[in-house]
């Protein structure tokens, strides 16, 4: 099991599109993915769960991956954060 903490860094936070992107990314992997925020824990492959977190900019999230490709999960999620969820390029 591996985990890493990220801080939401895109303009609007994890709203519908970034959340979609997140779920699409985590769903590519076989490992289970959990997101922990202030002790609240949700399934990292559930868009409804993610939306229920209402994670705005600056929110701290810990991603916990567990399974054969757990490190790839963290790498892919890290990449999403690095790219600011492609949010700032296109705007909307």
């Amino acid at each position: 099991m591996v985990e890493k903490t990220f801080i939401i860094n895109n303009r609007l936070g994890l709203h519908a599109r970034p959340a979609s992107l997140f779920v699409k990314t985590t769903s590519r992997f076989t490992s289970s993915v959990k997101i922990v925020r202030d002790g609240q824990e949700i399934d990292g492959k559930s868009i409804m769960g993610l939306l229920m977190l209402a994670a705005g900019p600056g929110t701290e999230l810990t991603i916990v991956a567990d399974g054969p490709d757990e490190n790839d999960v963290l790498a892919a999620v890290g990449d999403l954060f690095r790219r600011h969820f492609d949010d700032d390029i296109e705007g909307d």
Binding site: A16, A19, S20, K24, D43, S46, M48, G49, D92
Partner: peptide
């Protein structure tokens, strides 16, 4: 693309483990 992306989110909701 931007509206299609919204529909994309809808599809994900439909596939959500909650559902």
């Amino acid at each position: 693309k931007s509206h299609a992306k919204l529909m994309d989110a809808y599809l994900l909701i439909l596939n959500d483990p909650f559902i």
